[in-house]
Design a protein around this nucleic acid. Sequence first.
DNA 1: TTGTAGGCGTTATCAA
DNA 2: TTGATAACGCCTACAA
Lengths: 331, 331
Amino acid sequence: MARRTGRVTATDVAKEAGVSQTTVSYVLNNVPNQKISEQTRRRVLDAVAKLGYKPSAAARALRLGRSDLVLLFLPDVPVGGTLTALVELLGDELERHGLNLVTRRERHSPLESLWRELMPAAVMTTFDVSAEDAASMRAAGIHVVSAGMSPTTDPGVLTIPQHLIGAMQVERLAATRHSRIGYAAPGDPRLEGFLALRLDGARAACAERGLEPPVVLEVPLDISAAAAAAEQWHAAVPAVTGVCAYNDETAFALLAGMRRVGLAAPNDLAVIGVDNDKLAPFAMPPLTTIDNNLDVLAGRAARMIVNGVTGRSLPAPPQVTPLSLVVRESA
Amino acid sequence: MARRTGRVTATDVAKEAGVSQTTVSYVLNNVPNQKISEQTRRRVLDAVAKLGYKPSAAARALRLGRSDLVLLFLPDVPVGGTLTALVELLGDELERHGLNLVTRRERHSPLESLWRELMPAAVMTTFDVSAEDAASMRAAGIHVVSAGMSPTTDPGVLTIPQHLIGAMQVERLAATRHSRIGYAAPGDPRLEGFLALRLDGARAACAERGLEPPVVLEVPLDISAAAAAAEQWHAAVPAVTGVCAYNDETAFALLAGMRRVGLAAPNDLAVIGVDNDKLAPFAMPPLTTIDNNLDVLAGRAARMIVNGVTGRSLPAPPQVTPLSLVVRESA
DNA sequence: TTGTAGGCGTTATCAA
DNA sequence: TTGATAACGCCTACAA
């Protein structure tokens, strides 16, 4: 009676099918060079179905030296809808390939202790991982995918072109004849990294068009503060007439602040957000924004991971910029 | 040369410390009845630090028959901010106890194949898990926590009192002298389950106060449709003057629809949401809503799981209703 | 107080 | 084409 636990093992399947446990493994893993007779294969498969056999992920991981976990390190930012949606999508996609997503907020966990412990098939970071870290992970057979924010042509890096976001916002504002641009920065210091990139993009876009650099004001998630900022832009000479908000949240706050001081969008001050939040259509007025098409981003990330892990190479998707302008009424 | 992989094993640590691998295990796991000399303990710990040893989760899981994974099954609903925030919080909390959260959307995965495969320490479901399923999981040593929606006194079940949400909304509306109540149902059929419970709560609350049952209208996330609903409530005789929205999203849509047809909140139609969305303060007018205090809910869930897994029993938190009214201007 | 040895369920090497 | 058999790294009786 080796069966102390209730678990059905490959040995049980073998017994049921009247073959050796090895054969079961061969059949289940479709081992290339082994020629299994159709009859044997059937018997094994039937036994598997009959017994409801599920291979043990732990035993597998132990033997293979790598688990079917994928570790995702998130930056320690207020995880808004955008990022979470991405995580959801990524998880769904990985699941389809038998991979299990485990996410971590950066601050809590020293990168290394976790991957050594979990032996994940892949690790994805949303920040720049140090060269040594990357090297030792790869040495351990872990696929590393980083989602850097800066532009790069490295095909192993997923780029979320933050600078393009700022540029697109300015582009829209310029196209609607705004020549003095404002930039609404979020209050949260943890967003600093993203902010810098987006702002750079906006600055560059302004420069390209011969416009003055954007007038940056902080717009925290607070109506009074937002109102003050709105007035300041409005009162500037020459007046700022179009504002790029860091994201839709900031845009909502700004819009609310503007209402308080009797300023209307887009006439007094045009506002354009980022994220295409679910509530953006219901802003007053409906919010023009930049959609970062997370589904394509998530799909791309998933593909990079799956490719790396399986060794196969799924067809490369068209390299479209996953950014699109959603025009509503606020800008 | 047993060291083929780069992994540092407990045996390596033992060698370094000049003790047996068993001793290493004893020290690391603080085995109760073993008296390890302080000197030995130090040597082991030093070796661990020096070598950067991390126990293999896979080997551990294989040996123990259970991994340090916690499986969370989410209902297949559009995962809004509310649910995701809860997941985040839960994950953070579990992490603190060495547990790793893996989430699944219900539709994708047959409950069973996953837990048999992963041998999780615990499984948490947001729907009612069948009795047999629960039984076989427990038989396998897995702790099962369900987050049922219906009221129950079962201490093993985490209740999210959906019905109370509806009741609180009506209560607020009644307190501000509304006698004819409307209920704005979401368009998404996947929300049906939650909707039914919340609506029941609202109905009951109306009945308690001798009010007519709420007039239920569907308010999809579409301004025109929302506008039509608003007019219909407004035109009813006697007119509906206060509306409970299924959630803040629906409330935002309704508010936008009202603006289109020249109806203002709260005078023409008071609106109260659910979720206390980050953007709720910036609605026009600022949205009165019900906050479901996810942090306490997540904390409670985490505690149930950790208690079950570790066997210890963390102190029970005060049994407060994790619901609070946030009064702004819309109702 | 410490060490020896066996097995958790898989995969992979080598014979047959 | 199939079957023994040996690890993978850890925990834990049991022995010393």
